[in-house]
Design a protein around this nucleic acid. Structure first.
Length: 293
DNA sequence: CATAGATCCTGTATGC
DNA sequence: TGCATACAGGATCTAT
């Protein structure tokens, strides 16, 4: 469930704790956690041992930390249950500890904990991002996110409107705009009263602009509240949950009244998961059927 | 090329 | 009580 706001909370938490520290040792407890590091677990550990970490960067749901003196970075993705925790060395290992990074100062360890193992870490080369910065080559295909100062609204508007796919699927496509997952997609669509099954090609330019503004708005509000959490799976680097789930209008509210019109929120199957929407406020599901006829 | 669907994984909740 | 099934879903791979 960690989407952009949750990952940004983690980034901020890491920033003050790992920047400038030198890695002592890296222990990979589960090979799946480094499956995106093709050279394997021992190579992953070898590339980090003795290296000093720089600032913590983020694009969409990815985090990366460049290594001082190298054109490489350690890249992380939380998947849906990953946690990056800063814990004192004496804290007990939980059952889902996947990677442990210790530092030469013998202070807090950085632990990657991941119940469902969809997340992972890797070391990857850095390349130019085309705008004076750098990005790991393994995530060069990930688009800028809506909170990125270089996010180009009109470019994304054009890309959304060039596709026949359902608009919700486009929102979840990280090569169009990154950082949006199932929760914030549903919340953004609810805010602008669009049904997620509307084809991108059928939306007007103002509609897509309004949708992107809603995405930015809902993510910004979530960030202010420390992110969204439904269970103990998403936590910040200190193991604490956010509060934004109390502000949700659509996601996870099947059968509950819409906060605008009182109609019961509906849930439908979508891409092996769920979509939540107000059947009265969010019209437009029929246009696709009509177009086919 | 564009699009849609399947797949990885495990803890929790639910049904019989 | 025990077993089976459904569900959560981000990114990537495969199929059409």
């Amino acid at each position: 469930m960690p989407e952009l706001p949750e990952v940004e909370v983690v980034r901020r938490g890491l920033q003050g704790w790992v920047a400038g520290r030198t890695v002592s040792d890296v222990e990979v407890r589960h090979p799946r956690a480094v499956r995106r590091h093709p050279a394997g677990a021992s190579d992953f550990s070898d590339r980090l041992a003795g290296r000093t970490l720089r600032c913590v960067s983020r694009r969409g749901k990815y985090l990366w930390i460049p290594l001082v003196g190298e054109d490489e970075a350690v890249v992380g993705h939380l998947g849906m249950s990953g946690q990056l925790l800063l814990l004192p060395p004496e804290a007990p290992d939980g059952p889902h500890l996947r990677v442990r990074m210790t530092f030469t100062d013998e202070g807090r360890e950085l632990r990657f904990v991941d119940q469902r193992t969809f997340g992972g870490l890797a070391v990857a080369p850095l390349a130019s991002d085309g705008a004076g910065g750098q990005v790991p080559v393994t995530i060069a295909h990930i688009a800028r996110d809506p909170l990125d100062p270089l996010f180009d609204d009109e470019l994304v508007v054009a890309r959304v409107r060039s596709r026949d796919s359902e608009v919700k699927r486009i929102l979840l496509d990280q090569t169009v705009a990154s950082g949006i997952g199932n929760i914030y997609a549903d919340e953004s669509l609810w805010r602008v009263r669009l049904h997620g099954s509307r084809p991108g090609r059928g939306l007007s330019r103002p509609q897509v602009r309004e949708l992107l503004a809603a995405v930015r708005e809902v993510m910004g509000e979530a960030l202010e509240q420390g992110g969204t959490s439904f269970d103990a799976l998403y936590v910040n680097v200190n193991g604490e949950s956010g509060y934004f789930d109390r502000s949700l209008h659509a996601y996870g509210r099947e059968g509950e009244p819409c906060d605008r019109c009182g109609t019961a929120i509906r849930r439908i199957a979508f891409m092996n998961r769920s979509s939540y929407f107000c059947p009265r406020c969010q019209r437009g599901a029929r246009s696709r059927v009509r177009d086919r006829g």
